[in-house]
Write a protein that binds this DNA or RNA. Structure first.
Length: 1043
RNA sequence: GGGCCGUUAGCUCAGUUGGCCAGAGCGUCUCCCUUACAAGGAGAAGGUCAUCCGUUCGAGCCGGAUACGGCCCACCA
């Protein structure tokens, strides 16, 4: 057994070995039957688009801290890992790569062929991500690693879809979606990024059909005029009356469209519009209405029952193949625009108006335009058939709102049915009445009592984000025109294909007319509960039947397909499967013991950007499908920005691989630094440097963690040398006292602590010094502070508490203070008991944050000194592996020892300061005379050894009213006066004294002023007034001594 | 336009219900390779707490306004 440790800590030498042991011994694995309260964390599954960056490292460090902490605290703790297929993001990445490498587009591949390419990418990055997490020391239960598209998760998705479909919470809708013409898919509102662009306002004249003139509409997108079906004017507009009932002839297409009145139309400034509203400034008062290409116009169109004319193809070109009626081409001359891209068409339309003298004006206009977060092209509002999830239903968003902690939500919580709902109702109650009859929360009623008001956010302010999102929620478009994702489990008869045979599944499918609703009328009885229907009336009067098949019934799917039904080609929005994550990772819908044990999980740890995208959906789904919350506490941590304050992201390419940092600083150093950065703030900056030699990124910010690890390592080196010696001696001593187990003294009765702690206070024959009492008390305070910090998810405070205790108290003071005792054979064994116990406790305390180094040291400590602990004072239940060792319990504080020790620290600091100011060589021992009375004199004398060592001095005399020795410098601290003799620098001393006098004078003036203030004396709490008086007295006394 | 967050030392950040001289790490300066640690030790300098007004005996902290920076939502007439 070697106790020799290398002088500098080398993370590489220990991290791999610790990982191997944890892994081989399956120490991250948990079983539902294990003892302890359940504590589960589900990982926010990283996207397989790319490797992890430091933002993920922060996210996962925090989770690992929590899981390791709770595991040590005795919980049955589990951390469920996995990755997300990230639909559009991953497909786009692979499309780009294939185009770059093979020069081929997605459409040149067969669907399953291309999916295989994406699958290969996924395999590669999933492996890299897993490797990164493991190298970071994440104690995930790797036996349960999941992927949002693997078989168990696919089952969960299909089951969820089927149930929502059955309950009327999924419906087919023709709606304006955010269409990305580049990737040709619909985007969720959250996937649209607003960007400021320089555009123009075009003023177009539309002639009135009665030949009495024209109206001028203002638009930034002139090409959409091809789809105009009305011109609107505000009824308050003075011109409205004269135009009532009139119509205009739309240029180019010659369509006759009505002039309608709607107060949505903004009045121009000259007619009373708001000057601050840019719209009013630019408005003409006439609004062209294009229901198929603008969300507001769509609403207007609905209100006025206007036709919708779609003039674009999915790729963003002008097209007559998607709902633009033939008549327009017969009547007008729009043909020349067909096939033009929307931006080319814009120019062509403007040019046409110019040539026909109908272009009144063009003004430059800067405004924000929605762009695809993937392809970065402008979004086109586009009319298309999509699947929607009716999250506006009370069973989803309403339930999520009720789950919120009361004290965190609004101070005046929304009254149900009033406050929050008007917006919601006006949005959701149009044409979505399919689910009315299936409503009812009866089944979840008992559950609701349990979860209502239980969801908490840390920091609490993020509860507002969550709340306002749900109060203003719109139905969620869940279909995506992609190949990478969960295929929508709905089969339909499309394109008027004949059904062969016409009768199957027990009913005649040649009929177009079906009864309303989802009744399974006429079906074969064995199909009950296996399929669900929805029928939709098409614009041409025909009916489309949509059939959702319950998972596990491939034979029905085949039967449908043989009969001419086809499965929907679209896939589900990636958040649909992510939203099921807390359920699906535990293999829901199967009722597994794991599910029963760990759902709800406890804490979700994520970044604020996905509170709405992800957290919301998990809450809604878990409440809906299982009647309980997915987790009760949501921790939103800071986002890591680069040195310029930009978000760290793949697309910006400023991400830093945690493995780079681990190679420059070590995993523990990275984790420590990240934890200490996890404050209550929103963002933290991380200036990054690139190492020219290795090509890897690094940052000096991580030095703090590396230095701390090195300090820990070296403190242990020191302790080991002493413990191994001491334990040998101790063995001999113990033989004389009838075979007590390895130094741990049996707990007789813990001593009550006298206020003045004599140096020789003994427990079971062991003499404990003041420093021993002090460090134990400090340790207990540290445990309490760590518990507090971790319970409140203040990882920075946890890190700082450990840092301050270990470096500031343990290394700087305790280890120094006990050096004389460790050299004294009489005292060494007892002191070693304390040293070993405090070191043991410290390792436990810091393990969740810096697991590798603490685990490694733990093993060495077990070798050198297997039995540790101070019975009744600091219990150290033995454990082979630190990861499974018990979390420390808070013991008694020793106020008296802390007070006295603090005074001695002040005395030492004052002497050191004096030495430095007088430029005394650090190696030179100086002579000190101390003026102190009674109790203080006694304390100084009792701890003389420590003071002399720490201040490199010799205390010559301690007493009352001792005269200052010749040529001595003076210092004051903790109410005692010190003289250091033999200091040559008279000038320095004069300067010091003068400076101190100034300080004191200023202080006295200030304090006198405060006390002279009558209201202060009257209104401030008495103990503060007393304190002020004492301070004044002290300052005046010291000033007097200075002369 | 609505909402949220931030502004504290040269840099990155703490500062708990208002109450000692506003703190830490890095950087800077001085001294020291002392037997755990130079990735270290001892000490020092450095802040009108963004600005203004208010509440209070007392404000970095509470209230109001302004400026700057960032984020979220809404909005492409």
């Amino acid at each position: 057994m070697s106790t020799e440790l290398p002088k500098a800590y080398d993370p590489r030498s220990v991290e791999a070995e610790a990982l191997r042991v944890w892994n081989d011994e399956k120490l991250f694995h948990a079983e539902p039957g294990d003892p302890g309260d359940p504590y589960a964390v589900v990982i926010p599954p990283p996207n397989v688009t790319a490797a992890l960056h430091l933002g993920h490292a922060l996210n996962n460090t925090l989770q690992d801290v929590l899981v390791r902490w709770r595991r040590m605290a005795g919980d049955n703790a589990i951390w469920l890992p996995g990755t997300d297929h990230a639909g559009i993001a991953t497909q786009t990445v692979v499309e780009k790569r294939v185009l770059a490498e093979q020069g081929k587009r997605r459409t040149e591949f067969a669907r399953d062929e291309f999916v295989k390419l994406i699958q290969a990418w996924k395999d590669e990055y999933e492996a890299r991500i897993t490797e990164q997490l493991k190298t970071m020391g994440c104690s995930c239960d790797w036996d349960r690693q999941a992927f949002t598209m693997d078989a168990p998760r696919a089952l969960a998705v299909r089951e969820a879809f089927y149930r929502l479909f059955k309950d009327g919470l999924i419906y087919r809708g023709k709606r304006l979606v955010n269409w990305d013409p580049a990737t040709q898919t619909a985007l969720a509102d959250d996937e649209v990024e607003m960007e400021e662009v320089d555009g123009h306002f075009y003023y177009l004249q539309y002639p009135l059909t009665d030949g009495t003139g024209h109206v001028t509409v203002a638009t930034t997108r002139p090409e959409t005029m091809l789809g105009d079906t009305a011109v609107a004017i505000n009824p308050k507009d003075p011109r409205a009356a004269a135009l009532r009932g009139k119509s205009v002839r739309l240029p180019i297409v010659n369509r006759v469209i009505p002039i309608i009145e709607d107060d949505y139309v903004v009045l121009p400034v000259e007619l009373g519009g708001d000057e601050k509203d840019p719209k009013a400034v630019f408005a003409s008062g006439f609004l062209k209405v294009t229901p198929a290409h603008d969300p507001n116009d769509y609403d207007l169109g609905q209100r006025h029952k206007l036709p919708m004319i779609n003039v674009l193809a999915p790729d963003g070109t002008i097209s007559d193949q998607h709902g633009w009626p033939r008549e327009d081409f017969d009547a007008g001359d729009a043909g020349f625009l067909l096939g033009l891209d929307r931006f080319e068409a814009r120019k062509a339309v403007v040019e046409w108006f110019r040539q026909n003298k109908l272009l009144e004006e063009v003004k430059p206009y800067r405004h924000s335009v929605g762009h695809s977060y993937r392809s970065h092209v402008p979004i086109e509002p586009y009319l298309s058939d999509q699947w929607y999830c009716k999250v506006t239903d009370d069973r989803l968003a309403g339930a999520a709102l009720r789950a919120m902690s009361r004290e965190q939500s609004d101070s005046n919580p929304p009254e149900r049915g009033t406050g929050a709902s008007p917006v919601q109702q006006s949005r959701s109650d149009k044409g979505e009445d399919r689910s009315a009859e299936t409503h009812g929360r009866g089944a979840h009623a008992t559950g609701e009592a349990a979860w209502q008001g239980q969801l908490k956010f840390f920091p609490a302010r993020y509860a507002k984000t969550f709340q306002s999102w749900h109060e203003n929620i719109r139905d969620w478009c869940i279909s995506r025109q992609l190949w990478w994702g969960h295929r929508i489990p709905v089969w339909s008869r499309s394109g008027g294909k004949p059904i062969e045979p016409a009768t199957f599944l027990g009913r005649d499918w040649s009929r177009d007319s079906w009864p309303e609703g989802f009744a399974a009328e006429g079906l074969r009885s064995d199909l009950a509960g296996k399929i669900e229907f929805q029928s939709v009336q098409n614009a041409d009067g025909s009916t489309t039947h949509f059939i959702c098949v319950k998972p596990g019934h491939r034979e029905i799917e085949l039967e449908l397909e043989q009969a001419g039904f086809t499965q929907d080609p679209d896939v589900l929005d990636t958040w649909f499967s992510s939203g099921l994550w807390p359920l699906s990772t535990l293999n829901w819908p199967q009722q597994t013991p794991e599910l029963a044990k760990w759902n709800p999980s406890h804490t979700l740890c994520t970044a604020r950007e996905i509170i709405t995208l992800w957290v919301s959906r998990m809450v809604m789904f878990n409440l809906y499908f299982r009647g309980c919350l997915p987790f009760s506490e949501v921790v939103i941590h800071a986002m890591i920005q680069d040195g310029e304050g930009r978000k760290m992201s793949k697309s910006l390419g400023n991400g830093v691989d945690p493995l780079d940092i681990i190679s420059s600083h070590g995993s523990d150093a990275m984790r420590f630094t990240l934890a200490s950065m996890a404050t209550n703030t929103q963002d933290v900056r991380m200036p990054v440097e690139r190492d020219a030699a290795t090509g890897k990124n690094t940052s000096p910010k991580f030095d703090i963690g590396r230095n701390f690890c090195n300090k820990l390592w070296n403190a242990v080196r020191f302790a080991m040398m002493n413990l191994s010696v001491a334990s040998a001696e101790k063995g001999q001593r113990d033989e004389g006292t009838k075979g007590r187990s390895g130094g741990a003294s049996p707990s007789s009765s813990p001593q009550s602590l006298s206020p003045s702690v004599p140096q020789s206070l003994t427990i079971d024959g062991s003499r404990w010094s003041l420093a021993d009492h002090w460090i134990l008390s400090r340790f207990n305070r540290t445990v309490a502070a760590c518990d507090e910090a971790l319970s409140n998810y203040r990882f920075d405070q946890y890190a700082k508490t450990c840092y301050d205790f270990f470096w500031g108290d343990f290394c700087d003071w305790y280890l120094e203070a006990i050096k004389p005792a460790m050299r004294d054979p009489q005292r060494a064994p007892q002191t070693a008991d304390v040293l070993a116990a405090v070191l043991d406790g410290s390792l436990r305390l810091m393990h969740p944050m810096i697991p590798f180094i603490t685990e490694t040291i733990w093993w060495k400590l077990n070798d050198v000194r297997p039995q540790r602990g101070l019975p009744g004072r600091l219990e150290c239940p033995p454990a082979r592996r630190l990861i499974k060792a018990a979390w420390p319990k808070v013991g008694a504080f020793d106020e008296a020892a802390e007070q006295i020790f603090a005074k001695l620290q002040d005395v030492v600091a004052a002497l050191r300061n004096l030495r430095n100011e007088h430029k005394v060589d650090p190696r030179r021992t100086v002579s000190v005379t101390i003026n102190a009375s009674g109790e203080q004199a006694r304390q100084i004398l009792e701890n003389r050894e420590m003071i002399e060592l720490l201040a490199t001095c010799k205390i010559e005399k301690v007493g009352e009213a001792l005269p200052p020795p010749e040529r001595s410098a003076r210092a004051a601290a903790a109410g005692v006066e010190m003289f250091v003799s033999g200091l040559a620098d008279e000038a320095a001393e004069q300067q010091r004294v003068a400076k101190r006098r100034d300080e004191l004078t200023r202080q006295v003036t200030q304090l006198r002023g405060r006390l002279a203030n009558e209201s202060y004396a009257r209104k401030a709490p008495p103990h503060l007034v007393k304190q002020t008086q004492d301070q004044l007295a002290d300052a005046e006394a010291e000033l007097a001594k200075l002369g």
